[in-house]
């Protein structure tokens, strides 16, 4: 895991290459814009030094044309880069539909990863080469930031909220994984390794690391253990018991009518909040009877429940 210290550090994705191209051409432009200041200052210092004979007649006190040109030309040049950079950024905002989702939970001072297969790892993230990977991230405590320098991406990880970043690694190997947002005592050692493997190696690793059940199956088990079925029905299909709660089958990704007349989309964030802070948004037609699970469940368990609810089908198969 040795990075070359000078010049271009290892690039493990196509995106990383594009970011480097942006940064280096931008650095070139910036150097061009700075050059007149350094070069002309030096020349003027020599030529117009006190006591040196030089033609000082007709010194200008200003020129609107000069002012306009040295404002507008650099601005337009930089705007070209603005369009390029913003486009690159927006590409990085929307993961493809076939991306594999890995849940990330940050806590002081470690990174926990849960694969859809149910495999869990700490401070190490194994991913297959060439497959789009989406990291759905949240924090158990303060703000952290998952930084993968070899991929040129980072994203803050917030408590109580999901953020995401995605990538396609195109180089196998071991790359650094770091926390980039100051998070307390051991911030500087809250790091780990990103391990990119060929799909075959990755499958072998997963078989070896062996989860006894998938993420959704763990969620199902939690669902039963916590007694969710009492209100949501034994297969989460809704219940006719006196305490009614909405059915969860087919819920994922659909708009949910709320008691205040608005709608919410049943995405991960909605499901997360409905479990942890159920009184925040109440589904229309139901009593606000659900107890908050904010003090009962940790973020990893919530992710398992979400996986279970996702597995019950819905509008978007994500």
């Amino acid at each position: 895991m040795t990075l070359p210290v000078f010049f271009i550090p290892v690039e493990a994705s196509a995106h990383a290459g594009q970011v480097d191209l942006l940064i280096w051409t931008l650095a070139l432009l910036v150097a061009l814009l700075a050059a007149p200041v350094f070069v002309l200052s030096a020349i003027y210092l020599l030529r117009f030094r006190y006591g040196r004979r030089a033609d000082r007649s007709k010194a200008q006190r200003g020129s609107v044309w000069l002012e306009v040109s040295w404002s507008v030309i650099p601005f337009l040049l930089v705007m070209g880069f603005y369009v390029w950079s913003t486009k690159l950024f927006f590409e990085q905002q929307s993961p493809p539909d076939d991306a594999m989702t890995i849940n990330v939970v940050a806590k002081q001072w470690m990174w926990k990863f849960q694969h859809p297969s149910g495999t869990r790892e700490i401070n190490e993230l194994h991913v297959p080469l060439g497959k789009p990977i989406r990291l759905t991230m949240t924090s158990q405590d303060v703000i952290h930031s998952l930084y993968l320098p070899a991929l040129r991406i980072k994203q803050d990880v917030l408590p109580g909220r999901y953020t995401q970043e995605w990538f396609v690694a195109d180089k196998t190997g071991v790359f650094p994984l770091r926390c980039a947002e100051f998070c307390g005592t051991d911030h500087s050692v809250m790091g780990g390794r990103l391990i990119v493997q060929t799909p075959a190696d990755f499958a072998r690793w997963q078989a070896q690391a062996g989860a006894d059940r998938s993420l959704a199956a763990s969620g199902r088990e939690l669902f039963d253990r916590l007694g969710c079925a009492g209100c949501h029905g034994s297969n989460a299909q809704g219940s006719e018991s006196p305490i009614r709660a909405p059915p969860l089958v087919g819920l994922y990704g659909r708009p949910v009518p709320l008691s205040d007349g608005t709608f919410a989309k049943a995405d991960d964030q909605y499901i997360h909040d409905s479990i942890m802070l159920p009184n925040k948004q109440i589904a229309a037609g139901y009593e606000p009877r659900m107890p908050p699970f904010g003090n009962v469940l940790d973020e990893e368990q919530v992710a398992q429940l979400e996986a279970y609810i996702r597995s019950l089908g819905g509008k978007e198969d994500k």
Binding site: Q18, V19, L22, I23, S85, Y147, I153
Partner: peptide
């Protein structure tokens, strides 16, 4: 530039 900043910030 956002795409550069994502890598360089912090």
């Amino acid at each position: 530039m956002i795409a550069a900043d994502v890598h360089l910030t912090d």
